[in-house]
Design a protein around this nucleic acid. Structure first.
Lengths: 224, 224
DNA sequence: GCAAAAGTGTTACAATTACACCCATGT
DNA sequence: ACATGGGTGTAATTGTAACACTTTTGC
């Protein structure tokens, strides 16, 4: 009947590090699009869930393990893959690049982080997938305080501010931002300071996961 | 490799009519879950897009044609279908039940609208799908003025108010709601009145699609 | 003592909420 | 004249946005 439709998963992994957002891409080892860059991903096995499939493919192709990947969209245009009918469910996640060592393997000839403003030409319909992922990321951050996966366990407030500035692509008012963030009660101020060479040392904060998940369960409203 | 994974699409179609929200369900003609109620849907053909597949299945099984169905989520747990590995992409849409004549055919033995507070036991993981669709519907309506597909071309303001009251499941302030709605400039007031038997006749409004889509393109913010 | 980044409050403005009475019609 | 649903404004509160100077450290 329709056993010729195959199913793949793709993982759009965003990385954030001190002021730049990047995406993890692989260079394809085999045709089609041999030698071209693409979003990591691959076929779903019969006995694994979609989530397991993305995690596995991501690990295999790039060496990265993320615990949280969110489903983005399923792309199913008949001609999106020149080989045959392949439908792909895309996921997206956020990581701190420095926390991982990326290693190309299986059908990847190379893996690399690309600044999202300097993207190469992509394979298949991966530019559309990436575009949707970027839109979703920006939408998401304005109503949900994500992004904590992207900071160190202990961080100065300015890191959080910079993260938001970068992800939103615009300046934000330091005082108002701090007020709002602190009023959410999801940050714990520590008795530690950090000095960045010059300037006044900053207090360190910790992200209070418990309160965060409580809030999230109730449905956060959070506008920057 | 993995040609044993099959792909289906499901359509959660919500109906709204004067104060009640319903969902369109079919009674399955064949095993598994023969005689049980389920969300309409079926296998995707090799040469059609997912959207085409949902529309086709919906038409075949229920007789309904909707122009707008939005992708909801892709469900891919390995055991969600007892027959074999079947992954399903669910869509959802909104219609006015009275605008259609529902007719059971192909693998549906019966089709019916069910009030969402009086749902039968569903087949497969369709209760999870439906639950997600309901959550999404309620979330959506608070930040996007959908729902116009559910009203007549010309409608009294009270119809719109009732629609929102029903979809949100709570009372809303008539004056504030009217103020906000009118301030969006997506409604045109007509020089016509309608009388509902008793009480003061109401002015009729029309939905201004042009302004609506302009607004939508810019990204609507719309809180009730 | 100066450069660099951190920290902090107040005021104006906009948006949201709460709230109750009169109006036009049919019977 | 009364029952029924339609239509309207104002004040209080809350949230958001704009804005600039002082503090702490390293050099």
């Amino acid at each position: 009947m329709q056993q010729s439709i195959k199913l793949t998963v793709d993982a759009v992994v965003f990385g954030y590090e001190s002021g730049t957002i990047s995406v993890l891409l692989i260079k394809r080892k085999y045709a089609p699009f041999k030698g071209k860059w693409a979003i990591p991903g691959g076929f779903v096995l019969v006995d694994e869930s979609l989530e397991e499939a993305v995690q596995r493919e991501l690990k295999e192709e790039t060496g990265i393990e993320i615990d949280y990947l969110e489903q983005l969209y399923t792309f199913g245009a008949p001609k999106r893959d020149p080989r045959s009918r392949i439908v792909s469910t895309a996921y997206f996640g956020l990581v701190k690049p420095s926390a991982f060592k990326i290693v190309a393997s299986t059908d990847a000839e190379d893996v690399q982080w690309f600044d999202i403003s300097e993207l190469p030409v992509l394979s298949f319909d991966h530019d559309a997938i990436l575009k949707l992922a970027i839109t979703r990321l920006q939408g998401k951050i304005t109503y949900e305080p994500i992004g904590f996966e992207l900071l160190d366990t202990k961080f100065p407030f300015s890191d959080l501010e910079k993260l938001y500035t970068t992800l939103l692509g615009r300046a934000i008012d330091r005082r108002n931002f701090r007020k709002k963030m602190l009023s959410l009660n999801i940050l714990d101020e520590l008795d530690e300071k950090i000095s960045k060479g010059s300037g006044r040392p900053a207090n360190l904060f910790k992200f209070n996961k418990l309160r965060y998940f409580e809030l999230k369960a109730k449905g956060i409203i959070f506008e920057i």
